[in-house]
């Protein structure tokens, strides 16, 4: 069964319909890349799935749980929305680290605040916090940042900041990790280190959805490609098929433009 099912997402800003009925699904452990030119709606789609925008119509299911349904969304409490939202994580283009916290605190802040809602928090506070920190340190070690725990974001390179933000998103153990153009704010030489991290996560079968302009990377790392154009999915399929044997004229034109 698919871990992510997105069905019939519509979103308009004023009179402009940005998403005109988007449906796709993703298998557990797979990587899906969303490609398309600027203005095709891919970032809006990502923002709708991550609750940063509210879709006008549509339904999103993660691991069998409905996390969004346009018919019932208004009835949910803020807490219910937060709980649903935490099934997925998001890595931003601009990192959006918290500047006043060091690397470790950036990663542990959300889990610590979340742990306060546990019934046994007061009793086992020390142990709970220690566990959160252990986990954060392990994640940061995986990101190659063990020597930066005490550093503040302003002391890190863009690539390091983005790796912190990946660790921060993973600290809440989302079932799916979303990336919004994770390398677009980075120098070309720093892009490689982020792509390497994502590739490693893919090898560990982390389920991921990546909005990207890095075509060769998308082809290389993805199981599935969704090509968006003017608010619809113009073509989708296995990565090698989509890139090597595009069917639609629009995708052919898009790939041609990129290669020249």
């Amino acid at each position: 069964m698919a871990i992510l099912e997105v069905s019939n997402i519509h979103k308009s800003f004023g009179k402009t319909e940005v998403l005109k009925g988007i449906s796709f699904s993703l298998e557990k452990g797979n990587v899906l890349s969303i490609i398309g030119s600027s203005g095709s709606g891919k970032t809006t789609l990502l923002r709708c799935i991550n609750f940063l925008e509210t879709a006008d119509v549509g339904r999103i299911t993660v691991d069998g749980d409905v996390i969004f349904d346009s018919d019932t969304q208004a009835k949910l409490s803020a807490k219910e929305k937060r709980d649903k939202q935490l099934k997925i994580g998001l890595v931003f283009q601009q990192f959006n680290l918290f500047p006043q916290y060091n690397v470790l605190d950036n990663v542990t802040l959300a889990p610590r605040l979340r742990a306060k809602e546990l019934p046994d928090y007061k009793k086992n506070k020390k142990q709970i916090i220690a566990e959160i920190e252990e986990k954060a340190k392990a994640l940061l070690a995986k990101m190659g940042l063990s020597d930066k725990l005490e550093n503040y974001p302003c002391e890190l390179s863009g690539g390091q900041q983005q790796r912190v933000s990946i660790a921060r998103a993973m600290a809440l153990e989302p079932k799916i990790l979303f990336f919004d153009e994770p390398t677009s704010a980075l120098d070309p030489e720093l892009t490689g280190e982020i792509l390497k991290v994502i590739r490693e996560l893919a090898e560990e079968h982390m389920t991921m959805v990546i909005v990207t302009h890095e075509m060769s990377f998308a082809k290389d790392v993805s199981d599935h490609i969704v090509f968006m154009d003017q608010g619809v999915i113009a073509e989708e399929g296995r990565a090698d098929e989509v890139f090597d044997n595009p069917q639609s004229e629009r995708l052919k034109a898009f790939l041609n433009n990129i290669n020249t």
């Binding site: 940063l52 937060r82 994580g89 959006n96 802040l109 959300a110 979340r114």
Partner: peptide, 18 residues
């Protein structure tokens, strides 16, 4: 304060007051 700070807080499940 950049809107990204609010968005990052939101996707990390922080409440409005947090």
């Amino acid at each position: 304060i950049p809107v990204g700070q609010h968005e990052a807080s939101q996707v990390l499940g922080l409440t409005k007051s947090q």
